[in-house]
Design a protein around this nucleic acid. Structure first.
Lengths: 115, 115
DNA sequence: CCATCAATTCGATAGTTGTCGAAACGTCGA
DNA sequence: TCGACGTTTCGACAACTATCGAATTGATGG
């Protein structure tokens, strides 16, 4: 599953203004799981990189499942993981959510106001 | 499946600024399928309500599958269906995508700029 | 009233995915 | 080197879902 969709080179230099279909779908799928979304919220709200232990404490799931979800978020390009010896710290990858949000908003322009 | 999540009464009067967790998840799940997203794009870009036949012509799927996807989009509250005799016409439900976009963007404020 | 056509529902199936326990891997301190 | 601990991988299973063909419903026109 989850073949990598991170071939987009623009993530490092400038903010990608456009998402490939595959990438967009991968991100949406990653967000569509309640636990993963919750995890992402924690990462976002945390004052500085979240360790797995803290994530583990916040979510009522096993270590194996948490690891799985983290990988999904990383594969989708939503988070970055700094691996420091025994511990791993997660941070939001900037720009991705904004880009997706822009994509979604772009669908909302009604060219036909008629009933 | 897909119990309705349309209890939110504010969709008709004012734009809902907030989504319940359940609703948010339902919408994200609906968007996470490539064909459904494509369908939604068609509905959005169409000059005026899209008929099932047009949708059918655009998507390489059977009528049964299309019906299924349409129901998912409707259940998630993303589209409205006007049923006119034999034909059904789909329109985007205004505000929903914008609200979701806002929710996603809201996750992107880094209170800790440090590495 | 019947044939036709649009759309849905039903039943079945294949593929995907969330979940866990157990085992393995890697790092660190003693 | 060894053992403890954090994380990942593996194997398995249950639940869900996308998909289809066939049968059904419902409206329209002859």
């Amino acid at each position: 599953m989850t073949a990598t969709v991170l071939e987009n080179p623009s993530t490092t230099t400038a903010k990608p203004l456009r998402l490939t279909r595959a990438r967009r779908t991968a991100i949406l799928k990653a967000l569509a799981d309640p636990r993963r979304f919750e995890l992402l919220e924690r990462i976002s709200k945390a004052s500085c990189p979240l360790g797995c232990a803290q994530a583990r404490a916040a979510l009522p799931i096993s270590a194996a499942t948490l690891s799985h979800h983290i990988k999904e978020l990383e594969t989708a390009g939503l988070i970055h993981i700094r691996r420091e010896g025994k511990f791993h710290y997660m941070t939001l990858r900037p720009g991705v959510l904004d880009t997706l949000a822009a994509t979604l908003s772009a669908l909302e322009q009604s060219p036909c106001p008629g009933r």
